[in-house]
Amino acid sequence: MSTETLEQKKDAVEVKPAEALFSKRRKRLVSDPLSEDNPITVQVLGICSALAVTVKIQPTLIMAIAVTFVIAASNLIISLIRNLVPNRIRIIVQLAVIATLVTLVSEVLKAYSYDMYKVLGAFVGLIITNCIVMGRLEAFAMANKPYDSVLDGLGSGFGYAWVILAVAFFRELFGSGSILDFKIFEAIGWSNFPTNGLMVDSIGAFMVLGILIWVQRSKTGYVEH
């Protein structure tokens, strides 16, 4: 009797073909935030750290890696526990997860890359308040499966990374006359290249970022409503 019902149930379940590991929809999860739905240039989130850490490329790279890791990992964790989280305290739970991951990143940096820890200092801690991270948790990870959430996190992380790296490239090039601390202008025989003090200040970051947003939006045709 009991086996009969089991068999019946088995028949009733429609066998869906498993979605490809990198299906079109999943590729879009990663590629959308790079351009059309970029967290910085389109959603205008995470500006504070984009201004603060982009004086030179190397610390920016560390920051980009840290943020990408935090977004992807917190997206994964929240997505795994999304059905357990009580709705009323979900923001607190999200914050706790982010804060834990950020503290871990900060401690690891302190142990293995003390120079970078000194340069980035407070800004690593401030990833906690980076609106991109929390935005992704609330908008995506709370309602999607773990694997998709990781892809979404990576996409947003990369979208953030390329923009701040681009800003850092121009700021270091014109502000310090170097790329990754390599004195590029001296190398091509322009030893008295006039470095621009404005680029070293946050104001320079505002200007570079503004131009970047302009170029990027005119390319994708995004208009604020």
Partner: peptide
């Protein structure tokens, strides 16, 4: 994490 990383941090 704090306990585990303490020696490496002290060294840094």
């Amino acid at each position: 994490a704090s306990q585990g990383l303490a020696p490496a941090q002290k060294k840094s």
